[in-house]
Design a protein around this nucleic acid. Structure first.
Length: 213
DNA sequence: ATATCGATTATCT
DNA sequence: GATAATCGATATG
């Protein structure tokens, strides 16, 4: 199996990690860990990043930054390493991290995670019960699902500093190196649909969409 | 197994 | 008024 769920100490990523092109950040984000902390500041949920998509900013017709700066996409034009959260289809919150230098838009969308700790909390947030290992897929496989599992909302989390462990939501590394990475076109978009900007860990069962590698 | 469809709202034409 | 970086339920092979 290709599970990567050993639990080790997690150290945060610094801003220079994110202040690069979305393609580069997306690829290197695979294998890193998303952390949700409780009111006491301690990690409540952790999950490994196994699928992401890059959005290139004003030059990318599929990016929310394509029309230029608006109140909705403001975070994408700000400094790197901050959460851009958008609400879609009247139902779902999706989480991104801003990339590039301040003034230049760019983001990476989190599409799937592999749960590590706090699985009970995630199940509660999703409103489901885990009666079989196969049910774990439903926690965090897909951008809307992982947003709900981590209780991400625009009012709470948009603009949150994902490089700071003092934030309620942050990104770290436990030293894990992603093995084989695959690249395909992005999912669910109609504009610039052919660009290969989706990155995922080959063979990981939590990757959303197609079962074929 | 794949296909189609309804939900529900911020954002833009 | 239409659309959207989705999901879950239902229908059909």
């Amino acid at each position: 199996m290709c599970l990567h769920n050993e639990t080790r100490a997690i150290s945060h990523l610094d801003r220079t990690f994110f202040a690069r092109s979305p393609r580069r950040v997306a690829r290197e984000l695979l294998g890193k860990v998303l952390v949700r902390t409780g009111d006491d500041g301690k990690p409540r949920m952790t999950a490994r990043i196994v699928e992401v998509e890059a959005y290139l900013g004003e030059q990318d017709p599929a990016s929310h930054a394509y029309p230029g700066p608006t109140s909705r996409n403001a975070v994408m034009f700000g400094p790197a390493g901050f959460a851009y959260v958008y609400f879609i289809y009247g139902n779902h919150y999706c989480l991104n991290v801003s990339c590039e230098q301040e003034g230049r838009a760019g983001a990476v969308l989190f599409r799937a995670l592999e749960p590590l700790t706090g699985i009970e909390e995630m199940a509660q947030a999703r409103g489901i019960t885990i009666s079989h290992p196969r049910d774990l897929i439903k926690l965090t496989s897909g951008p809307g699902r992982l947003g709900e599992a981590f209780r991400v909302t625009r009012s709470r989390d948009n603009g949150c500093d994902l490089t700071s462990p003092a934030s309620g939501l942050w990104i770290g590394t436990d030293g894990f190196r992603a093995p084989t990475i695959r690249v395909t076109p992005r999912i669910g978009i109609t504009k610039a649909a052919e660009k290969r900007l989706r990155y995922f860990i080959a063979g990981n069962p939590f990757v959303s969409g197609r079962k074929t590698l």
